[in-house]
Structure formats: C-alpha cells, structure tokens
Simulated scan of single mutants.
Amino acid sequence: MIQVNNVTKTFEGFKALDGLTMKVERGSIYGLVGPNGAGKSTILRHITGVYRPDSGSVLVDGQSVYENPAVKAKIAVIPDELYYFASASTRDMMKFYRGLYPRFDDKRYQALKEAFPEVDEKQPIRRLSKGMQKQSAFWLALCCEPDLLVLDEPVDGLDPVMRRQVWSLLMGDVAQRGTTVLVSSHNLRELEDVCDHVGILSHGKVLLERSLTDLQDNIVKLQAAFAQSEPPQLPRDMNILHTSQVGRVYTYIVRGNPAEIKSRMAAYSPILLEVLPLSLEEIFIYELGGEDYGVRDIIL
C-alpha cells in the first residue's frame, strides 16, 4: 500500500528526514512511533502528498502521491492540529467532504451519529472542545471510506470510553473493508493493543520496523531461581540482553525462540522457571539498547 524509499527532506539546513525507508502493507494497522522531532509528522505529510521529497520516492498503491488527485481521493487524514473553515459546523464540513471524496457515504454519516452522540453537528466546530473536535474529525473521515487513513496523534483529547469506541470503529473498517491505517504517536502504550506492525523513528530514520508477532516471537523474559547460591554460568550464544536479581530470583531478557530458550534454561535444573510476557515497551527497550536516548524516553 505504502512504499517509502530512501526519502530525504531538509528545511533551512535541518535534515528532517535522512534516507527514511518504510513499507506499510494493505489492510494493516501500522504504528509509527518516535520522540518529538523524529520526523513523524514530516513523513506523514509526504505520504499524504503535502510535501515533495528532496530525494527518494513515496508511493501509494504504486503511484507517486504528490500532485496526484486520483491517489489523494483514496486517502483521509486526521492531523494533530485540526483545521476547519471558519464558523463551519460538522454538517457544513460533511457537504464539503462529500464534494471531495467520490465514495463519501451519506448513509454512514447518519448512522455514525449514534457513535458520536455528544457532537452537535450544527454547532461551529471551533466552539467545540478539543475532544469533540476530534470526534467530529473521525466522524467525517470514516464516512469518506478511504483506502488509506492517516492519523497523527489521533486520540489526544478523547476520554477512555471514546478512545475505545474510535479504535473499535477503525478496526471494524480494517476487517470489513481492508482499510489501511497509518497512525503516528509518541505513546507506544497507546498502540500496543491495535497495531499489527510498528516502526520506530529517530533523527529522520526508521531504526526498527517489524510485525508485533515477529517482535514477540524473538525475545523472551525468564524468571529463574536455583538451589545453589550462585546462578549457573550461561553460555554466550544464549544472547542475554539483560539480567537482574531480586533475592534468589533472577530475571533474564533473552533474544531468540522462547520455547528453545526455556528448554535450554531447564537443563540447569532451576527450582523456579517461569516465562513472562513482555510489553511492547520492554521489547523496544531491549531491542534498541542504547541506540538513542530520545527513543528510550518514549518507551520507558
């Protein structure tokens, strides 16, 4: 669906994107994570055709998106800072969107009133709270029935109940229509339950890009206790990323196949051996190591 190839972008001597490469598969929910200034909003503006890259290419459905109205008609965007016409209401913007998007669904617009009951469609959007403005934005974007939905810090300002409602609607579109969702956030915890692929940005580059399944199948957290006072000397090829101790219990973070690692550890006859799930934050911390303190700040 999206292929970004070695894209660079410089603003007045500052290199916002530095050879960034990423790929988003059709029908996936891809989380783009990074600290402030990592280049998240800049690459989103390239993918939506706002910016032209200095070098490299940005393709959506195999076509360059910049100055390509046919491709842009398949993309809906909810930016971090929302923009509406002065004094426009949600209903006014619905009429505007209906003229822009060939697949705008009037029936769905009426149906989604129940999903966003607190939004007064006749009231000027600028008079709504931040949370209400975000609800209005989702209401309109979902009615466009896009092939690609691009979200920049999408649920800021929404209460927990409405966040769940919005993610439920998005995942429903992914499952039923094959919508591709690209969501940027500085908060990895926000994405853990909804994304199937994650890319982490730092200094204009993608440091790590994997499916959550691959991440979770390649690193394991073990807790073990041994009869002897000192733990056994584990072989170097076990690729231990981190070791900690609380009393007699040792915690190991190990890269590799979980079943194989547990089997190898069992050979040392521990009196306690337990495999624990790792959060996505922990996986990134140990995968990245000391690569970038800015990245570590967003996931610790």
Rank of each mutant, 00 (worst) to 15 (best):
54 D>L: 06
284 F>K: 05
271 I>A: 07
219 I>E: 12
282 E>G: 00
248 R>M: 11
247 G>A: 07
158 L>V: 02
8 T>Q: 12
157 G>T: 10
240 I>H: 07
90 T>C: 11
105 D>W: 08
54 D>K: 09
153 E>L: 11
266 A>N: 08
145 E>T: 05
126 R>V: 15
266 A>G: 01
275 V>M: 15
202 S>I: 04
21 T>W: 08
185 S>T: 15
106 D>H: 08
228 Q>S: 14
158 L>A: 00
55 S>A: 07
288 L>E: 12
112 L>E: 04
202 S>M: 01
62 G>N: 08
181 V>L: 10
62 G>T: 03
236 R>L: 15
266 A>K: 02
11 F>I: 01
129 S>I: 02
208 L>N: 01
20 L>M: 02
105 D>M: 08
125 I>Y: 04
97 Y>L: 10
39 G>M: 00
280 L>G: 03
38 A>D: 13
242 H>P: 09
209 E>K: 06
111 A>H: 06
286 Y>T: 10
53 P>C: 03
292 D>L: 01
246 V>R: 14
163 R>F: 09
2 I>H: 01
194 V>A: 09
218 N>W: 03
189 R>D: 10
63 Q>G: 06
275 V>D: 12
206 V>D: 06
105 D>T: 08
225 A>T: 14
68 N>L: 05
36 N>V: 00
143 C>R: 08
242 H>Q: 15
150 V>M: 02
139 W>P: 01
40 K>A: 10
9 K>Q: 11
288 L>Q: 06
102 P>I: 13
209 E>W: 02
270 P>D: 15
293 Y>W: 07
218 N>S: 12
208 L>Q: 04
106 D>Y: 03
7 V>G: 00
98 R>C: 04
252 Y>S: 06
251 T>S: 09
91 R>E: 10
64 S>N: 12
28 S>L: 13
257 N>E: 14
241 L>G: 09
31 G>R: 04
93 M>S: 11
250 Y>T: 13
238 M>V: 03
198 V>P: 04
229 S>K: 05
83 Y>I: 10
21 T>P: 06
43 I>L: 03
145 E>P: 01
225 A>S: 14
183 V>H: 06
11 F>D: 04
61 D>L: 11
139 W>Y: 13
222 L>Y: 10
11 F>R: 05
80 D>C: 03
73 A>V: 07
30 Y>D: 07
274 E>I: 12
93 M>Q: 14
192 E>Y: 07
97 Y>H: 05
256 G>L: 00
130 K>N: 11
209 E>N: 07
180 T>N: 11
243 T>Y: 11
238 M>W: 12
113 K>L: 09
230 E>R: 03
278 L>H: 03
272 L>R: 12
16 A>Q: 06
157 G>C: 12
90 T>Q: 06
277 P>I: 03
10 T>F: 00
118 E>A: 01
281 E>G: 04
44 L>D: 11
139 W>N: 04
208 L>W: 01
111 A>W: 03
133 Q>W: 12
258 P>V: 10
39 G>H: 03
96 F>G: 07
79 P>W: 14
128 L>V: 14
190 E>M: 13
